[in-house]
Every structure is written in C-alpha cells, then in structure tokens.
Amino acid sequence: MKLEDICSVLNGQLICGSDKTNREVTYAFASDLMSDVLTINCSNLLLITGLANVQTIRTAEMSDIDCILFVRNKTVTPEMKDLAEELGMTLITCPSTMFRASGELFRAGIKPLF
C-alpha cells in the first residue's frame, strides 16, 4: 500500500517526506513502547504510534523503519521533523485512535507482523 493511500484512508496529514508518497508499505506494527519496536526484525514496515518525541524518530532509525504514523493528531515538534528529514523518513499524522487506524489499515490490506 502506498503512503499516499494510507493518508487517504486515514485522512492523514503528511508532515515530511512528500517526495516518498509512492513508497510501498507491506507491514505495520502499532506500539507506544519503543523497546518493543526495537525487537522487531522487518523491512518495509510502518510504525503506528501515539508516542511523539525525538526518541520515537531515533527508535525508528535504529529499527530501519522509514515511515511513522502518529495517531490522535499528536504534535510533531520541529526537532522531530528536522531529524526525520535528515534521515529521509516520512511522518504522517492522523486524527484516528491507534485502534481505528490499525483496523482501517488492516482492512485496506496492510499486514500484521505476527
């Protein structure tokens, strides 16, 4: 599923990475626990989270995750955006809860890891 389609399904707003909206995502993992994210071994993964801080971006970097979806319209700070742009990541925010966002993306064909 393309990132632009994810935005469309969830009424999401692209925060950065507008040149990568054609990027395909196959899997998603939803968590606010960054230590849990660090145990994941998967490429082509979308991280769905309600945790919005610089360490969310750093954790994605270490986990080779290129796209993060922030639920509940969480605020992406300038520091987060700058770091994500430096790392070539795509950040999206959406108004949905994590449960709804996960459900909508699952229905649209995004696969769970486990």
Partner: peptide
C-alpha cells in the same frame, strides 16, 4: 513516558 523502562533493554542487548 519516553517509551522505555519496560524491562526489555538488557534482554534485547543480550539477544
């Protein structure tokens, strides 16, 4: 609150 402190760090390092 920063997303850590769940007792997974050292086991993950060990793994």
């Amino acid at each position: 609150e920063m997303g850590f402190g769940a007792g997974m760090g050292l086991p993950n390092i060990n793994a």
